[in-house]
């Protein structure tokens, strides 16, 4: 039934259609056999000549070259001691050695281009869990020396083998220049790369004088810019305001020199500095030190936590 109806409908359209241009088609093929050619649906109410609603092209998302930088005027910025007062209140009753102060330095920077990355020795170091492994020829005097300096793992092929098996008992890896070729051949970049352990001359972890490097690594800390922000633990909850300010100062100085070293073709500038703790909120710092409340002295922020 349906098929006859359709036939009738196309026949009816045929009889209504008055176009003369299509006579060519008619002459060769009966129109009702090719209804789509015979009766182009013309819609008069929709405007535009071609007929039908025009589909809007999907809106193209705007892309930015730089990371977003916010207007800081709605942000209440506080002095270091004020931030510490709040954070110490938030962290009351927590173990002072396990809770850390953290600092986030937001930069005005391009999404691509060079990133800031460096090693820093804070005036008041607090990390004691640095375990160093050294890649150097096995059973050489170098290996003995490395062990004496406190390396947890020393060797060449034995070390590579343990790394391949996923046994990584260290969090810093140094390579002696003599073993550089062996390291390249070992093909362990896949294992070490994501952990940031792969030695390279750029990070000064391929060295001929690993005595100096080990000394630098012990009690030193690394920072790097990720997504336009440098984040770093800066102290323990037990630190006094002056200790914390020394550490922050040192970090800011190093970051600033790093920024100055960046090529002028790239955008790189300091935007905001935020201090927080393990459980506390983040306080945007205004660069001042003293508490704003008259009743609070710096000494008050030094009590046992």
């Amino acid at each position: 039934m349906a098929s006859t109806n359709r036939c009738l409908a196309s026949l009816a359209r045929l009889s209504l259609s008055t176009s003369t241009t299509r006579s060519l088609v008619v002459s060769t093929i009966p129109k009702f056999l090719v209804p789509s050619v015979a009766t182009p649906l013309v819609r008069y109410a929709s405007g535009s000549g071609s007929g039908g609603m025009k589909k809007k092209a999907p809106k193209k998302k705007k892309t930015y070259k730089t990371f977003r930088s916010y207007d800081l005027s709605p942000m209440d910025q506080v002095s270091l001691c004020d931030a510490m007062r709040y954070l110490r209140a938030f962290e009351v009753g927590q173990s002072p050695s396990s809770v850390k102060y953290e600092v986030s330095i937001k930069l005005k920077t391009n999404k691509n281009g060079p990133v800031i990355r460096n090693r820093i020795r804070l005036p008041f170091p607090f990390k004691t869990d640095t375990r160093i492994a050294v890649i150097c020829p096995e059973d050489s005097p170098l290996a003995l020396e490395a062990q004496q300096l406190g390396a947890v793992a020393v060797g060449e092929e034995s070390l590579f083998e343990s790394i391949r098996q996923g046994n990584i008992p260290f969090n810093k890896l140094i390579c002696h220049t003599d073993s550089e070729a062996a390291l390249k051949k070992a093909n362990i970049g896949k294992m070490l790369g994501p952990k940031g352990l792969m030695p390279s001359a750029k990070t000064k972890t391929i060295t001929s004088d690993f005595k100096a490097t080990i000394h630098e690594l012990l009690g030193a800390d690394e920072y790097r810019e990720r997504n336009g922000v440098v984040r770093m633990a800066i102290g323990q909850l037990g630190f006094t305001p002056s200790m914390l300010s020394e550490n922050v100062k040192k970090l800011m100085e190093t970051v600033k020199t790093d920024i100055n070293e960046v090529d002028d073709n790239f955008v790189k500038a300091l935007d905001e500095v935020v201090l927080s703790t393990t459980h506390g909120p983040g306080f945007s710092l205004n660069g001042k030190f003293n508490p704003t409340d008259d009743k609070i002295k710096v000494e008050h922020l030094q009590s046992v936590m």
Binding site: S73, P74, D82, A269, L270, G287, K288, T292
Partner: peptide, 27 residues
């Protein structure tokens, strides 16, 4: 956190514009 004007040594500088005095409540 009211900020009082006081002569305090800045221990670091940021490149940001001076902030508005009164924080306006965002709608």
């Amino acid at each position: 956190m009211p900020e009082r004007s006081g002569r305090q040594a800045k221990f670091f500088e940021t490149d940001q514009a001076p902030r508005r005095d009164r924080y306006q409540v965002p709608t």
